[in-house]
Design a protein around this nucleic acid. Sequence first.
DNA 1: CAGATTTTTTTGGTAAATGTAAGATAATCA
DNA 2: TGATTATCTTACATTTACCAAAAAAATCTG
Lengths: 221, 221
Amino acid sequence: MQLSLTEEDYLKAIFYLSDYDFEKGVSTNDIAKRIDISAASVSDMIKKLSQKKMIHYVKYQGVTLTDQGKQYAIDIIRKHRLWETFLVDKLKFSWDEVHEIAEQLEHIQSRKLTERLDAFLDFPTFDPHGDPIPNEKGEIILQKRINLKSSPLYTMLKVVAVHENTPLFLKHLNKIQVSIGTHIRVLDKIAYDESLEIEIDAQRILMVSKEVAENIFVSKV
Amino acid sequence: MQLSLTEEDYLKAIFYLSDYDFEKGVSTNDIAKRIDISAASVSDMIKKLSQKKMIHYVKYQGVTLTDQGKQYAIDIIRKHRLWETFLVDKLKFSWDEVHEIAEQLEHIQSRKLTERLDAFLDFPTFDPHGDPIPNEKGEIILQKRINLKSSPLYTMLKVVAVHENTPLFLKHLNKIQVSIGTHIRVLDKIAYDESLEIEIDAQRILMVSKEVAENIFVSKV
DNA sequence: CAGATTTTTTTGGTAAATGTAAGATAATCA
DNA sequence: TGATTATCTTACATTTACCAAAAAAATCTG
């Protein structure tokens, strides 16, 4: 089935809010907040997507994606991440510039284009922010990643992904020279404001705020 | 100014219907036919685009593009032709597959993306159908091209462009092995049905219908 | 040049996507 | 458990983009 641009955005929002637990219902309000739209409008759209069998919906309870809806959402995310990879790898954009453009490109409809792009990029498995790119069948490899905020002290860690793809956040990471692959050791956790003292690439030592730490994901080296 | 996808389509249609004579007014009906929409709707949209100073409009007379509108239209065409070039050169699409996809891609809004794409493609001047790609300033190099139907007999000619970018037409050209760069000599013009007898690459001789000849553009070698 | 024809515009109406305001339902707390 | 609060839905309104039918203007033609 062919959905409108708007419907696609709703599906994607529901997918992200599910956070890989597709049993759990997603609330109207959460969707509203996520895509910055009134709850009333979300209520309307929920009815529509439900009718189209993309979501399962019971009044006053949350919505869950149907298998069809989930596949559709994954396809959009696949396209988004492939385009981001294209923009960074081929067109030399920096990682803080690509999200917005990929938000547009993800809606381009052409199965063949997606597959050709995938091949052109040599079948990448992760996008520039470290997020996994679903394969042609819609399968996603979930990595074991820990939030930097809740990672162990003194252990050598490697940045595998960052969330919150806003230029503001990503530019800050550029400034403190943190990117995918950077090695980090947490030296101290400050109870007062939940900030962290970290060592970067076994060289520099600095403090990062709770907000920053929450959006960095690491794995053990 | 930011226009909607639909408004962009109208501007592009008006640009093409103007056929580089931007003094001449384009009629409501012609626009309606071109984008397959009722004249009433066109009438509505004309008012809107006029208000936005994209076109100049006097009731019951045709519309003409303002400088702003012309630049906007050229920008869309630039994007369309760059994307087509990308699809053929980089993603190995054939020339009969790219038009539809480029119709979607041409609406992506990012000046920087367009310029990066242009550079990535090494600043191409013609798209896969032989049409000139406007440069960053919106300048278009108009080639001297003659319609095959009205070209001289016995002269050696070279295909520089084809119009009507439908798969149906382009696949037919594939079949008769005509593409950009092919050498053609017109051997005879049949008065009865306006078809042409042509020699291709100094080898094969065949007949092409009026419809085909009208959509092939050539220059003298 | 006057009636016929064509073209264009206006009028009134629909569907999609949104919003505000208000009412309905569910959850929570005292 | 009843009242309060939070969440969700409904009702009604707006904007964009469209259409069919009627009206108006322009153009053609005998």
